[in-house]
Write a protein that binds this DNA or RNA. Structure first.
Lengths: 332, 332
DNA sequence: TTGTACGCGTTATCAC
DNA sequence: GTGATAACGCGTACAA
């Protein structure tokens, strides 16, 4: 039967004890230099690989982090995952990645399954359905921790990494106003998504400061498709700029205007959010509010590890930035 | 100290042996029905979670699959990962996801680290640098297996899931010819990428069959940016359609034509490859060759598991399909 | 049907 | 400096 080499194999090959091998391989020893050499050589020769499961069983450290996102294929989460991967690799951790498909039930089940895998902690972006994180409350009792990222949840049990959505909206609002716009149409995904509400409120805050009327607010889950929303309000002449919850909506808006022959940005401006790659590929190219997804991923990992090791690390700057492209008309 | 409940805890709480608990929890028992009930109730009460590491140590089955992709954040791989996640979850497996950053050295190191985690098998999309998979050869001796996906490697040691790139190119070529195009410009990433060469050769095969001259072939890594390539050959009037290695290049091509005022598809047609979401967001919307990334992910998982369990499963159809949008001019 | 005893691979403790 | 031994949580052959 095929089997991977263990320290026992190394020990018996060299006629020493397993504990000696273990110590040498972990550098916890000031052994006989000659022996150290021999052990390391034999380990290489036998193609030895430490068995993390056994090690974890003994030490209660698995160097495993569990991650739950609504959808891996979504490029927003994919970018965050990428940052997590980079940070965790630098720190010698591996990632166990799962997707909840926006289902709270599945989230529950995944948490259990991750605990079963002995992860040291869990990073989770809650599903749209999830409005409390009671199912995570058992974690601290197990010596594990969690960090919530992206989606905002009101409970303050676990640390929480998210972009300052309101600040992002505010930034966008200031920019649109400075470029001469007066009537904003906001298109969101759903009023239930707190991030969207925060972005909208940022826009309105900027408008308030200039004594302009609030955004016309609309949401895809209640007010119809982007096209329908645009056409409906267009007839009323209700907006000179469209503030979108994210770039996907922004791209849809631009595509619609292209189709019906409305010139962007000459006749109407469009501003996205998130600064995803697709901003470069619309015509005109979509201006957007950038949030560093990569940094968010890195920060989620370091925050979790700090929690577990009770250390303190630097916090990264994830303040929103405006990325100007060609979808917003400049004051002439 | 905080500790998660074990079968030992359940056993002592109920004053039975651990083996009884183990048997009941695994359903390998026709125990006293009353006892079964009590054990299950106690397990729930203590919030018991099986320790997969310990179980894996004993049974040599960890229900873990290791995955190595060049870049998680890339939405092409993200989509494949999504399919893998779906398939593996249905089969009770968890995914350990790593990224190689297109580095062969890192791939090597990741394989070792995945073996250390006791994964049952490895799914890998080799990096651009990787032209042999010798570093995977040790796997079978360890009772583990691997499945290569996406990127083509010439060695036939492990099964191999990839799209039929040549067939995809052929499909695209036939389509462009049928729409009245005669002179094709192909823009690839790098001549070293076998997938690109296969796609190009598919285009040329279609052209050959109609006695038309081969594509003008260019590659971003040697011939300059997409814009430079387009302008250079445009002046020579060398093409009436641009066949792109992937949709990203296609989007760049469309954006460039929009910028210099060349009408797509009236003056020149553009065809992408992969049918990624961004096809919907260019103007005009980008026609493309679809490969089902999700299915590829699913298939990689089922193929690996079949290999490990020596079972046989259905093969999914991942034949390329043409997705018509608005970037290719139709014969008038 | 149930309990006892042992081993999976590793590390920590304590002798020597 | 090195080796025997126990322990981590679990599954299972074997005995009862």
């Amino acid at each position: 039967m095929k089997r991977v080499a263990t320290i026992k194999d190394i020990a018996s090959a060299l006629d020493v004890s397993t504990s000696t091998v273990s110590r040498i391989l972990n550098g916890k020893n000031q052994s006989n230099a000659q022996l150290v050499k021999e052990v390391k050589a034999m380990a290489r020769k036998l193609n030895y690989q430490v068995n993390t499961a056994a090690k974890g069983l003994r030490t209660n450290k698995t160097k495993l982090i569990g991650i739950i996102v609504p959808e891996i294929g979504d490029d927003f989460f994919a970018a965050i995952l990428s940052g997590m991967q980079e940070a965790s690799e630098e720190l010698g951790y591996n990632l166990l990645v799962c997707q909840s498909n926006e289902s709270k039930k599945k989230e529950n089940q995944l948490v259990k399954s991750l605990i079963a895998c002995n992860v040291e902690g869990i990073l989770i972006a809650p599903s749209k359905e999830t409005h409390n994180i009671n199912f995570l409350k058992g974690l601290p009792a197990l010596g594990k921790h969690a960090v919530i990222f992206d989606r905002i949840i009101d409970q303050e049990v676990f640390p929480h990494i998210s972009f300052d959505d309101e600040q992002g909206g505010y930034l966008g609002g200031k920019y649109l106003i400075a470029s001469g716009h007066r009537k904003l149409l906001f298109i969101g995904l759903s009023e239930a998504l707190k991030n969207g509400v925060a972005r909208l409120s940022g826009y309105n805050k900027a408008l308030d400061e200039s004594d302009l009327p609030n955004c016309t607010a609309s949401f895809l889950d209640t007010d119809g498709t982007a096209s329908e929303i645009l056409d409906h309000h267009w007839q009323e002449g209700a907006y000179d700029a469209v503030a979108c919850y994210n770039d996907l909506i922004g791209a849809q808006v631009i595509a619609h205007f292209n189709e019906i022959g409305v010139k962007v940005p000459q006749e109407v401006s469009v501003l996205g959010f998130d600064n995803r790659p697709l901003c470069e590929y619309t015509f005109p190219r979509l201006s957007s509010i950038e949030h560093s997804t990569n940094k968010m991923g890195r920060m989620a990992v370091t925050t979790l590890l700090d929690l577990l090791n009770e250390t303190e690390s630097e916090t990264l700057d994830i303040a929103p930035k405006l990325v100007e492209r060609n979808s917003v008309r400049q004051r002439s």
